[in-house]
Write a protein that binds this DNA or RNA. Structure first.
Lengths: 198, 198
DNA sequence: AGCTCCATGTAAGTCGTTACATGATTCA
DNA sequence: TGAATCATGTAACGACTTACATGGAGCT
C-alpha cells in the first residue's frame, strides 16, 4: 500500500484499535524502509504521470519481524486513563457535576460499543476491504482462523465498553446514595487550597 | 509535598492509576510553579541543614484549576493497547503460541486484579498514607464521599481486569476449537511476505 | 569509611500531535 | 476553472522515558 492508502484505513476501521496521522505514517514508512523491513516501489500516478506514488510491501525480514512481534507477549499497556484519575477526585465537584460526569462517560462508551458492534458484524460477513485483501493473500483453509481471531479481538473491545457502561451506572447509583438529603449543587468540598504542609 | 515524596507515592499506590518518573515530576512541578498553580517553600534538610528541599502546595488558582479539571468530561483515552493489535493477527503464529499468548495475558491481569483488590481493601480500612493525609484536610462529613469515590474508581479497575481475564479465557477456548485435528506447533500461516501489490 | 536513603536536577531521544506546505489528478 | 481528492512531506512542540550526574544526611 501507499502511505496515503494506509492513512485512509487509519481514518476508518484501523482507528478502532490504533490511531496514527498521515504525518506519522509517512515518516514511519521511511524508517521501516531504512531498516529493511519494507521496500518501496515508485509508481506513476494517473495517465500522463507527472506525479508518482510509493507503494510499500513487506520484505522477508519484515514478515519475520511481524511474526515475531505478534506472538511475543504484549507489554502491559501504560494505564493512563484520565477518567479514572478524575473519578478518584469527584468530591471536588457537586453531586450534580458527578452525575453529569458519569452520564458523559456512559454515553461515550455506548457510542463506542455501537461502532465496535457494527464492525464485528462487517467482519463476520467478511465485508470489510482490509479483511478481503487479507483473505485474498492467505490459503483457503486458514480463512476461518483469520476471521475468528479478529472477531474475538473486537468482541473483547465490546466487552470493555460494556464494563465501562456498567461502571458508570454504578457510579450514578453511588452519587444518588451519597446525595440523599443534600443540596445537589453544593460542592462536596469548597474550592479552597488544602493546608500547606507544616 | 516535595518532588521526592511525590515520586515515592508514584512508585507505590499512585502507579496503579498513573505513572511518572522523578525526572518528569521535578520538571512538571517547576512548570506548575511558573504557571502559578503551585508555590514552593524552600525548607532546610536535617540538623545542620547544609542542604534544602522544596515543599510544594496548591495556590488558590491551582485549587480552582483542579476543581475545574476534575469535573470536566474526560477526553477519550488514546486506545493504544498493543495486546488487541496483536490479538488481531494471532494467525501469524502457531496454535501453541496463541495459547501461550492468551495465558500470559490472563496471568498479567490476574496479578493486576490482586493488586487492585488489596488496594481497595486498604482504602476501605482507610489505611493508606495518602488517603489519611487527604481526610485530615477535609471536613468530617465529607469523608464517606471521598472514600466512596476512590473505592468506586478502583473497583472499576478491578472489573476491567476481570473483563480481560474472561476475554483471555474465551481466547483459549477459541484456540482449542480452531486447533482441533491440527498439529499444534504448525504455524497457521507460513512466515512469508504477502504478495506485493501489482 | 562506606552504604543507603534523601533530594534534585539535566540531556538525549522516542513517540505522537498539530500545523504548515506543496503540488498533481480528476471530474463536473 | 474550480473543487475535491490523491499524494507526500517538514517543523515545532508536548509528553514521557532512559540515562547521566551530583551531593548531603543518617546510620553502622
Amino acid at each position: 500500500m501507499t502511505g496515503y492508502e494506509l492513512a485512509k484505513y487509519f481514518d476508518r476501521s484501523v482507528a478502532f484499535i490504533w490511531q496514527a496521522r498521515h504525518s506519522q505514517i509517512y515518516t514511519e514508512l521511511r524508517r521501516l524502509e531504512a531498516e529493511g523491513l519494507v521496500v518501496a516501489e515508485t509508481l506513476p500516478r494517473g495517465e500522463k504521470a507527472l506525479a508518482t506514488k510509493r507503494a510499500y510491501a513487506l520484505t522477508p525480514a519484515g514478515a519475520e519481524e511481524l511474526h515475531r512481534w505478534v506472538t511475543e507477549a504484549a507489554p502491559p499497556p501504560p494505564l493512563r486513563d484520565t477518567a479514572y484519575v478524575k473519578a478518584t477526585y469527584l468530591e471536588y465537584g457537586s453531586y450534580q457535576q458527578a452525575r453529569r460526569w458519569f452520564r458523559a462517560h456512559r454515553s461515550h462508551y455506548e457510542a463506542l460499543r455501537d461502532q465496535y458492534e457494527r464492525h464485528v458484524d462487517d467482519l463476520e460477513r467478511r465485508a470489510t476491504d482490509l479483511l478481503r485483501r487479507r483473505l485474498a493473500q492467505a490459503p483457503d483453509p486458514t480463512h476461518d482462523a483469520i476471521v475468528a481471531y479478529k472477531v474475538h479481538a473486537y468482541r473483547g473491545l465490546i466487552e470493555r465498553t460494556k464494563t465501562e457502561i456498567a461502571w458508570a451506572d454504578r457510579g450514578l447509583e453511588l452519587v444518588n446514595r451519597l446525595s440523599e438529603g443534600h443540596d445537589l449543587s453544593d460542592p462536596v468540598l469548597p474550592p479552597s487550597a488544602p493546608h500547606p504542609p507544616t
